[in-house]
Design a protein around this nucleic acid. Structure first.
Lengths: 196, 196
DNA sequence: CGGCATCCGTGACGATACTG
DNA sequence: CAGTATCGTCACGGATGCCG
């Protein structure tokens, strides 16, 4: 906690002591995609200032949410990755995303977009497709491992995926908002699934 | 959002634009117990300053999370209560409380306590007891309506409860942390349930 | 060039005092 | 009782500098 504690003997308040600071949960969202370097984090968190990002990462290390690790041999760069405790924040992000999805109806010109930001809300809708799934959106490509793998999702194409899901932006939005199911989307052709 | 928006086309970031400010989710926690007056909110949110509380309540009205309503006839006081949209934040608080429960192992002398702060994490463990349940803890009494009633829980005793659950502080902690189930607690006598 | 640390202007926060 | 006013402090965001 970089801000002061709430000093309340309450489970929710204790959680907010750890992850209630501005940017912290969005950093967790990024790290759920796997280990990332400082510069990559900064690039996918538009608006965060360099000192705040560095400060939050230190807070997260101190709280046991993330670790800093040196990559082996030739890379020799530092990466940040979530601990097991940090990965357990996925249900928090899922609940937040579920609640916030209706607000995606308004798309503002100032909004930044990354394809993998859809991974958390989409993962719930992809549960009927088991294994490693590659998702191709207008905004880009990412992959999801359904059935509780470790890093849940990652940026870019998957390595030998079990299935590939393709759809356009409106379809992705409707799916995330729960307007229709994956099966319905497949039936009327808005969602295409190719199985390996 | 009183702070600036994250400006990200991401469901979780949109949610945090609405409820990511300091104190907002704890105000929601209080209002999940039903309509409350300003002074009562201030009393059960130790540490919040009067201007921040007033500011957050206005933000929440503007965001459609809460409404300000004048009580009828003799009371003539204003109360704040959640909208349907605001009540949908319960899963967010549940996920946060689940994640934060281990941190309750450390009980600090500076911690404030209210009995009804246990309602959110306890509600999950009480699902096997249907209906209106009165919970008696060392810290006080509150009640929970399981099976999706409207205000979920409230302070103080219940009006004609279907069941009454009594336990001590350690037992409550263990239950919240998932160390044992309600049934196990009843079996070894740590939890007492009286059915009407 | 990646990974921060420093400086600075603005605004959010917390405490107290005050008012209808 | 239900806030508003004031004020000192600290956190945030942006820019820049430094160092391997």
């Amino acid at each position: 906690m970089s801000r002061r504690s709430y000093d309340q003997y309450c489970a929710a308040a204790r959680a907010l002591d750890s992850v209630g600071d501005r940017w912290t949960l969005l950093i967790v969202r990024e790290l759920l995609a796997g280990p990332r370097r400082y510069t990559d984090l900064h690039a996918d968190l538009p608006g965060v200032s360099t000192d705040v990002l560095a400060s939050r990462l230190k807070d997260m290390e101190r709280e046991g949410l993330a670790t800093r690790r040196k990559l082996p041999a030739p890379a020799s760069a530092f990466v940040y990755e979530l601990t097991a405790r940090g990965r357990e924040l996925l249900p928090v992000l899922t609940a937040l995303a579920e609640w916030g999805a209706p607000a995606l109806a308004e798309r503002r010109p100032t909004d930044a977009v990354r394809a993998h930001w859809f991974a958390v809300p989409l993962a719930r809708r992809l549960e009927s497709v088991a294994g490693l799934v590659e998702v191709r959106l207008d905004e880009g490509v990412f992959h999801v491992r359904t059935g509780d793998g470790d890093p849940l999702y990652g940026e870019g194409p998957a390595d030998r995926p079990d299935a590939t899901v393709t759809m356009d932006a409106d379809t992705c939005l409707g799916l995330v908002q729960g307007e229709f199911t994956l099966e319905e989307g497949v039936r009327d052709g808005r969602v295409k699934i190719e199985t390996a």
